[in-house]
Design a protein around this nucleic acid. Structure first.
Length: 573
DNA sequence: GCCGTTTTCGGCCCGACTGTTTTCAGTCG
């Protein structure tokens, strides 16, 4: 089985950790981390590139040495440099680096002085009070590490964006109520609309910075204050969410917002670009020597380095700066581009509202159409539709449509893809539908090859239009099933199929990387909410977030079109 | 380890906060 980009990235990151603990040159370490990050977001499989004898050193940040290491990993699944490093530095030490407060230098000390080689060793030493005897460690550091190890049993996972929004909203309202406050805005990955957030960065401008800081650390929902400074404070809320607040002067707002929005890699690239132009950018502005030459607004920051404004969702250093240079940034899709929703459920199966009610709700959101995609018969637990009941539903929708003008309910189904790649309903009934959505709801544990083959075979059915929630993941709850999405994108391209970007905030597959891959291949995407009740139609905005992170434009998305135009993009059966 | 309209060698983003110090290193984002 070919090695995945993420696996290569993990290996390179591990090597970087060990090198850092050993005390290797920091820039060498960074080179490994940069390469790992590049691979994580690369819209192509490196294994395929190697197989096609492409020159990996043409990738930005990959030189001769790294290209060689990546090729070795692809061809042998093994990395000699890592094996050699592990002889000098115990492999498990990289786990220790994940503990807040422990960086490479302290982990180095733990190993050198106390012969600690893994988490268990750290835990024993911490309990025995040995950590505070070390140079650079003290009582507080030891207490903090012990507290972390105690807490660690209740895993500190990243939080869904939708959950973080709910937690953060009332905090924002509280801060906005502080006297002298002008602005309070979330930045960081929250503003870049990542599907999950590890922490939330809030930026404020306020006449009384000490006042807003006091209110922040005194907020009712704060469980623990990590830091409390004049311009930066950091807390953990009861929900476990980590929140940072930074206060800057009003004239620095743009530079600060840019800086705190990140990503880190994007910032580094922008700052390096500023240096080339003889400028310095920090969170207080753009400077030429000691003179401040800009930074009140974000566009000013970009203008200083001769770039057009770059949308937050693109700021991952995945080619957006190069695209901006050439004035070829995508014109990202927006919520108001959406004309209809192509996956929803009714009370006929597991939905909570009738077809008419769902249609009414969609119409209220300004849509022109809504597909009712109830489950098919194999889904017995939700009373999936067999051909007879689907035929009844078709007639019901016909009757409802007769009474509607300017809106159309689409006859559809979320048909199960069977284990052998067949569909759960016969062609005779599928051909009566406006659009056929297919999905995997069983046999998640097939091998990657079998799963991929199964789905490709389903796409062979001439009535199959849209492949729904293509990885099956539920963020934080269920891993994606093993599947080769890249080859499925090719399969979709060949057969004229569409891939769904499921807008449910727990799903959001396709993810950003594969959205972009689809765009490059010319495979259209349907953004659908998979709504089981009228309110969930509002999840569309999370799908839009993900699409924007995947560089998608209005034209890349099927349901930005009126139905008649969208229909023409569906394969003819 | 990477990279080059100043460079194939000498650079590589930048500042805040904490803890352990007595002027600063380590960590973090």
């Amino acid at each position: 089985m070919p090695i995945h980009n993420v696996e290569i990235a993990q290996t390179l990151n591990k090597l970087a950790d060990l090198l850092e603990i050993e005390g290797a040159n920091a820039f060498r370490v960074r080179a490994y981390r940069n390469a790992a990050r590049l691979l994580e977001s690369l819209p192509r499989s490196v294994a395929d590139m190697v197989a096609a004898h492409e020159d990996l050193s043409e990738l930005p940040g990959i030189g001769e040495a790294l290209a060689g290491k990546i090729e070795e990993l692809v061809k042998t699944g093994h990395l000699t440099a890592l094996a050699q490093e592990e002889k000098r530095v115990p492999a498990a030490l990289s786990d220790l680096m994940k503990i807040p407060g422990l960086g490479p230098r302290r982990v180095h000390e733990l190993f050198e002085q106390l012969k600690i080689t893994d988490l268990a060793g750290l835990e024993n030493a911490a309990r025995a009070g040995k950590l505070q005897t070390l140079e650079g460690f003290g009582e507080k550091t030891e207490t903090r590490i012990r507290a972390y190890l105690d807490r660690k049993t209740q895993a500190t996972a990243r939080m869904l964006l939708v959950t973080a929004e709910q937690v953060v909203e009332s905090l924002l309202q509280t801060l906005r109520g502080v006297k002298g406050v002008k602005r309070v805005v979330p930045a960081g990955s929250f503003r870049r609309r990542q599907e999950t957030v590890g922490d939330v960065d809030i930026l404020a401008t306020c006449a009384d910075s000490a006042g807003i800081m006091r209110r922040f650390v005194g907020y009712e929902d704060v469980a623990e204050t990590i830091a409390h400074g004049a311009t930066r404070s950091s807390v953990i809320l009861r929900s476990g969410l980590h929140v940072d607040l930074r206060v800057v002067p009003e004239e620095c707002y743009g530079a600060a917002l840019h800086y705190f929005t990140g990503s880190k890699a994007h910032n580094i690239a922008i700052r390096a670009r500023a240096l080339q132009a003889g400028l310095k950018i920090n969170e207080y502005g753009v400077f030429r020597g000691e003179t401040r030459v800009g930074g009140a607004t974000e566009p000013e920051v970009y203008a200083a380095v001769q770039l057009p404004y770059i949308e937050p969702e693109l700021r991952e250093d995945r080619g957006e700066i190069e695209a901006a240079e050439k004035n070829r940034l995508p014109k990202l899709v927006v919520l108001t581009d959406i004309r209809g929703d192509l996956q929803s459920h009714s009370t006929a199966t597991d939905g909570q509202a009738g077809i008419a009610e769902m249609a009414q709700a969609a119409r209220k959101r300004g849509y022109e159409y809504l597909a009712i995609t109830d489950h098919s018969q194999r889904m017995t637990m939700v009373h999936g539709l067999n051909a007879t009941r689907l035929a009844q539903q078709i007639r019901e929708i016909d009757r409802l449509n007769e009474k509607l003008s300017g809106f159309r309910i689409l006859k559809s189904i979320e048909v199960d893809i069977l284990e052998n790649g067949g569909l759960d309903l016969a062609d005779a009934i599928l051909k009566e539908l406006d659009v056929v959505v297919g999905a995997v709801h069983s046999h998640f544990n097939l091998s990657r090859e079998k799963q991929t083959e199964r789905i490709a075979r389903a796409m062979d059915n001439p009535y199959f239009h849209i492949f729904a929630h293509p990885s099956g993941r539920l963020i934080g709850e269920r891993e994606a099933y093993a599947v080769d999405l890249e080859s499925l994108l090719h399969a979709a391209k060949e057969r004229g199929c569409i891939l769904e970007l499921n807008a449910h905030p727990m799903r959001l597959d396709l993810n950003d990387v594969y959205c972009r891959m689809a765009k490059e291949l010319g495979v259209k995407i349907a953004i659908s909410t998979d709504s089981h009740n009228p309110q969930s139609l509002d999840f569309m905005r999370f799908g839009i977030n993900q699409a924007r992170r995947g560089w998608l434009e209005k034209d890349d998305i099927l349901n930005t079109r009126p139905w008649e135009a969208a229909r023409k993009l569906l394969r003819k059966s």
